[in-house]
Structures are given as C-alpha cells and as structure tokens.
Write a protein that binds this DNA or RNA. Sequence first.
DNA 1: CCCAAAGTAGACAAGTCAGTCTACCACTAT
DNA 2: ATAGTGGTAGACTGACTTGTCTACTTTGGG
Lengths: 198, 198
Amino acid sequence: MTDKKLLITQTALRLFINKGIHAVGINEIIKTADVAKKTLYHHFATKEQLIIATLDYRDMLFITWMQAHMESKETAHQSITALFHALDDWFNGRAEQLGEFHGCFFINASAEYKQADCPINQRCRAHKQKVREIVASFAKQITADKRQIDFIADSICILKEGAITSALVQHDLSAGVKAIPLVEMLINSVYQNKKGNT
Amino acid sequence: MTDKKLLITQTALRLFINKGIHAVGINEIIKTADVAKKTLYHHFATKEQLIIATLDYRDMLFITWMQAHMESKETAHQSITALFHALDDWFNGRAEQLGEFHGCFFINASAEYKQADCPINQRCRAHKQKVREIVASFAKQITADKRQIDFIADSICILKEGAITSALVQHDLSAGVKAIPLVEMLINSVYQNKKGNT
DNA sequence: CCCAAAGTAGACAAGTCAGTCTACCACTAT
DNA sequence: ATAGTGGTAGACTGACTTGTCTACTTTGGG
C-alpha cells in the first residue's frame, strides 16, 4: 500500500462515514485528499473498488479496536461487558481509533447497498460474522454447550447492533451502557443454566 | 390527498425501501408511477419534500401495524412479546402492510441523512420516539416505577433495533425470535424487582 | 356552464456524476 | 542512461441529476 493509496482510502472512509457513500463523489474525495484524479484511478479501477477498500480498512480498524478492548480481562464475562463500555466510549467521542461517531459504517453501507449479491453488501455481512466469531470465542470460555454459545453470540450481536442503531437514530448516546443490564442478565442466565445441569 | 399524490408517495416509498433514497431519481419515480413530472412537482416542491411525505406515510403504516399486533392481549407482557413475533413475521415476508423486508426505512434514511438539523433525520428520530412511547405505555401496565418503565422501554427499543439490523446486515431472518429470551429475562427481572420492593 | 385545479408529454437548463485522456514531471532500480 | 512506476493538473465525454417550463387536455364542483 503506497502512501497515496492509503491517504485516498483514509480520506474516502472519513467522507463516507460523515456523509454517506452515495452522497460523496470522486471529485470531493480527490479534492479533500489533495491528489489528482488520475492517481485515484491508478490505484482503484472504479468507485466500487474504492468503497470496498474503505470497508476492508474499516474492518481492520474496528476488529483491532474491539479486540484491544476485550482481551486481557480476568474473565470472559468481563470481556463481554467491556465491549459495551467500549461502545459507550465510541458513542461519546472517546474512541480515537474509530473517530467521531456516525453509526456503524457497515450497517450504513448495507442500508445503501441492499442487493445480497453486491460485493459491498457481502463485505458488511462478513464483517458482522467476524464480530460474532470474536464474541463466540469468549462465550466458549463461559460454557461448553454449543447452543448456549450460539445464544450468547446471537444475543450480544443483537444488543450491540441495537445500541449502535439507537445511538445513531435516536441520538441516545447512553445506549451502550443501557444495554449492560441485559448483558448481565444474559450471562447470569447461562451460569444458572450450567448449575442446573450439573 | 389526491389519488395521484398518494400514488406518487406509495411508489416513491416502495422504490426508496427497495433501493435506498439516493439511489432512486425523480425520473425513475415518475416512470414507475406512470405520472408526468409536472404532476409530481405540483404536489411536492422538491425531492426532499417527497422524501418527508414517504417518511410520514411509512410512519403511519408502521405504527398502525405495530399497535395492531400489540393491542388486545391479555397482559402487557404478552403485548411486548407479540412485538417480536410480529418482527419475525415482517422479516420472513408475512407482514403484508409493510411489504418485503429491506430493513427499517427510518434507520436506513438516518444512515443516508446524518445531519441532526436535517428534517429527514428529525422525522426518523421522531418515529423512534413514537415507538418508544408505545412500548412505554405497555411498560406502565407492568410497573409504576418510572425508572423501571424507562428501563423496559430503552431495553425493548435496543432489542428491536438490534433484531432489525441483524436481519438486514447479517441476513439473519430469525433475529426477531432470537431476541425473545432476552425480552422474557427483562420482564421477569422487573417482576422480581417488584416482589423485592413490596 | 364554466372556471380552476389537476392532469398529460416532453423539451430544456444547469449542474454533477464516474471515468478517460493528454502531456508532463520526479524518482528509482537495473 | 533509460525504462518503468507513480505522481501532477485539468480538460473532456456522455450519462444522469433536480427542477422549470410550454402547450395542451381532463375533470369536477359551484
């Protein structure tokens, strides 16, 4: 990745996040990044290819950020709770790596590109699958029951998407911490279930 | 509302839902609705006014649908659970009034129009506020504690948005029913809290 | 009956869109 | 030294964007 290619990707990502994808044109991107149009088209064949590059870049940023906040906790329970404290940081502008909060880039991209066979939509789906797998890896430390692991992963993903969406649409910046009591109930219920089965 | 005005609103709404707002032009709308361009601009001064009309129309449809599925249940608990069964119907194409599922129109519109002072964004926020108030009206039948009412309303909204978003992005059409165990835990915890306080 | 409102088709203006291309410059590795 | 790569500015194409306008027809209520 050349300096210019990275600069274009980062600039496009920031503009897409701030204004939406359709709302940002190639001319605005090159003007903001202060590069020639030929340079952009030297690195990216089409606008769609650039969008995909921004999705891949954001995926890398987000997954790194998420793992950094969940790892090295004493228990898996704490790791999962930490995710929602991290969301709270993000919503309230305390997540430097992710920048200002304008909703989840992948949810927003899915809203603009809905066709299931569209590569943009597929990247969004793949990102959410990655997130789910990280949550599931912590769930495995809580229970060995596969159905319970799926239950935790699905539930946490629903709570995470719900908090992000509420923060975006309702402008409820405390949605991250509001989800935590539900997370606690969920994890406790899985522990209760283990006790009942032994 | 004239026949033509309604026809244009319904056609625009369907196209916006299927393809996204920015992705649909005026020319496509008038061609699909089979009306003259002058007719559209006779009823709507700008595209933005038309978008707002589709948001208002969808708000009316959704709130009516939601209330129809929640009312006339034996308990408020059942009404709230019924909301998530209704979501399951919607995701899986069994909600005629709402049409094919392409995510929540208000979430998607917020993703495309993020400026807080933009009238489109404000309508989306107002719609979610309406939904929250309906949930809160049922929560009031469960507890008199205002903090618990807020807790139920906020939690149910997070679960609802999370289920809708998971269904859209991850293509998880069972997200509605997956949220139900969390709903049950939530309501039960409020009942437990009442017992403890009496 | 008659007038105003609502409708028709479609040309048109002014701007923006993605993407191509020319002509030129700077650097670097063989 | 020279070929290849990556860079510059910006003109240009052709299609599409919202919105206006002319000229005409239909329709329904006082």
